[in-house]
Simulated scan of single mutants.
Amino acid sequence: MVKRVIAIVEDEEDIAELVSYNLVKENFEVRVFNDGESFLSSLDNFYPDLVILDILLPGVDGLEICRFLKNNYRFSRIPVLFLSVKDSETDKVVGLELGADDYLTKPFSPRELVARVRALLRRSGLREERTAMLKAGPILVDLEKMEALLEGEKIDLTPVEFRLLSIFVQNPGKVFSREELLERFWGGRFVVDRTIDVHVSGLRRKLGRFGSLIRSVRGVGYKFEL
């Protein structure tokens, strides 16, 4: 059986060793990077199954690395788990809104970390293969370039708004509950239903007169309908 490869981007040697030890014990293959630049440089010939990412790194910090991964089509589907001493609600929300799939604070339980890694890998394995271009009415979504066009004009979307639009365009007519969208984005952790409402509101605003294509389903969530 092929081992899943986990990238650990962590500048504290003792933390990196603890994480590595517990993952190797569970039959994962690991590669450890002590700074953000060495990890980014490795991506020319390295494609991990999951990234465990500290925020407070020398040079390029974890937030910048996450932003890069989630805005690059080649890497956008790699699950990112933040492992950080920054433990305020604001820190968690910022990380998750950048596109991270989970957020665990230090100090942490190694067993919980391994469980979250397994859960993220299961979720990523269930994601449907996507075509590079999606079209629905006046909206064109280019998954390879991570761009969306409205009547031929590029729309400036955040990573979360882009992923929301992609989900809606791929599933016209399907009703998504807020809980389902929270689970797809963040595993339902650390965020409340209102978070989805805020992102949908921002997406509708950027779609202008076509924002009404994203319809509210009272008491449930949203659907995209031409």
Rank of each mutant, 00 (worst) to 15 (best):
D14Y: 13
G95R: 02
L57C: 06
F185H: 04
S41A: 15
I214H: 04
V217L: 00
G202F: 01
L213N: 07
E17L: 15
C66V: 10
A7P: 07
V217H: 00
Y73A: 15
N71E: 11
E26M: 07
V5W: 08
L226E: 12
V2C: 09
L203W: 01
R118W: 08
I15W: 11
V2H: 13
R118I: 10
E153H: 11
A100C: 10
R67H: 12
V117N: 03
N27L: 11
R127H: 04
F108Q: 06
L23T: 02
I139H: 02
L23F: 00
L164D: 01
N45T: 10
G188Q: 09
L181M: 13
L53F: 07
F68K: 11
N34R: 15
Y222E: 02
S177P: 03
E179Q: 11
D44N: 15
I78K: 05
N27M: 13
K206G: 05
A148V: 15
D49P: 00
S124Q: 14
R123D: 07
R204I: 04
R127T: 00
E151T: 12
N72A: 10
K106C: 06
M133R: 15
R184I: 14
R163N: 14
R118T: 07
K154F: 04
Y47E: 12
E13Q: 12
I196M: 00
F82H: 08
D35W: 00
G36E: 04
V60K: 14
L69W: 02
G95E: 02
N71C: 04
S88K: 14
D11I: 07
G125W: 07
G219N: 02
N71D: 07
V175E: 01
N71H: 06
R215L: 08
V220C: 01
E64P: 00
P159K: 05
E13D: 14
E180I: 01
S38D: 12
L18C: 09
I6S: 07
G187A: 02
K206N: 05
L40V: 10
V217P: 04
R118V: 12
E17P: 06
L207A: 03
L81I: 09
V19G: 06
P58T: 09
K86A: 15
V191I: 12
L43D: 04
V117K: 08
V114P: 03
K70S: 05
R218K: 12
R130L: 13
T195R: 14
E112F: 08
F168M: 04
D44I: 14
N22W: 13
V51Q: 01
D11W: 05
L226M: 13
G95D: 05
T105K: 01
L57T: 04
R77M: 11
P58Y: 03
L50F: 03
G173S: 07
V192L: 13
L203K: 00
P58S: 08
D44Y: 13
R204V: 05
D14L: 14
E147W: 04
L69V: 02
S177K: 01
E225C: 09
R209N: 13
G188K: 09
E144Y: 10
D102H: 05
I139Q: 03
V32G: 06
L213E: 09
N27P: 05
L40Q: 07
P48K: 03
E29R: 14
R194Q: 12
E64G: 02
I155A: 10
S42Q: 02
P110R: 05
R77V: 13
L164I: 01
L149H: 06
F33P: 01
V192C: 05
F185G: 00
I196N: 00
L81Y: 03
R218M: 11
